[in-house]
Design a protein around this nucleic acid. Structure first.
Lengths: 148, 148
DNA sequence: TAGGATTTCCCAATTTTTCCCACTTCCGCA
DNA sequence: TGCGGAAGTGGGAAAAATTGGGAAATCCTA
């Protein structure tokens, strides 16, 4: 169960140092690769390869004649890359994915249960501000009675 | 049932000394870890790990393709960290959580039933002022008939 | 096929983190 | 009022991790 946020700097080669504590859970001790893909909110998703498989299968099962699904399929499947961490636990992010997510140097690495999200730091703060600014956060339908 | 407010100073390393009286209730005598996460009001929430589990489970059950829930999941799950107190009963708060809550040195540690809130002292006083200043505190809907 | 450029992989030093110990202060009790 | 114990506070040393660089291999082009 992935959780926790880390601010990370990419190096000059576009490599992202995955936080030490999550390397083993992500790669199951180095035995499995990871999959990096794109999300409509302009962040990247990082899965252990075995956890990505069922997601990909479900996306591929979308009815391909329904035009509304095609952009999702293009994004989720089209951008997916299977990668391995290097010996120092770093991930080389392709220029295409970096461009998509607006990632340059400073990123936020955020656990979301079965995957991690990778955000450009500035964009991360902008989407946080939408929730935390304005005094009263908007509660989506179905969440009105949620208590912490 | 956690209650009571304590003003605490973080040390130079960002460590928060948990008040002695609440250490055992929080960790059940040192046997369980605690979970620290973020709240939209820009404070931190501190749970005994077992008490956090059901909250996290409910957040994780949100429909993930519904964009309205994603910011909440990113906040509550994304910032969650499972921690242990050190041998002196202190909690090392990550730079990410400190930055989110605007915590620098002086904090207020406030019991809230099933969890504790950790506030930057200045921000705590500001939100207190918003309730106590202005003569007539605003009553949220449903609280009109509340009696103390 | 050879040269050049790019990519990939790995090593190693500095920096950071983590853990623990010791000193000082505060409070209770005699 | 003094002593004992406990708790708060700060510091330091060992271990681990990040970061940058460098060498080798590969690919592309001329």
């Amino acid at each position: 169960m992935f959780q926790g946020a880390s601010q990370i700097n990419l190096d000059a080669k576009g490599r992202l140092a995955v936080p030490t504590r999550v390397r083993d859970p992500l790669t199951q001790g180095g035995t499995v690769p990871v999959v990096l893909t794109a999300h409509p909110d302009k962040c990247l998703l990082l899965y252990p390869a075995p956890a990505w498989e069922p997601v990909r299968a479900r996306v591929m099962a979308f009815p391909s004649l329904d035009a509304a699904f095609n952009p999702w399929k293009r994004l989720l499947v089209g951008f997916a890359e299977e990668l391995a961490l290097d010996s120092a636990g770093r991930l080389l992010i392709s220029p295409e994915l970096r461009a998509f997510a607006g990632i340059d140097k400073r990123v936020m690495f955020v656990g979301q249960g079965s995957y991690y999200e990778i955000w450009d730091l500035e964009r991360w703060q902008q989407q946080l501000d939408r929730l935390t600014a304005g005094g009263t956060p908007v509660l989506p339908p179905g969440m009105e009675n949620f208590s912490l």
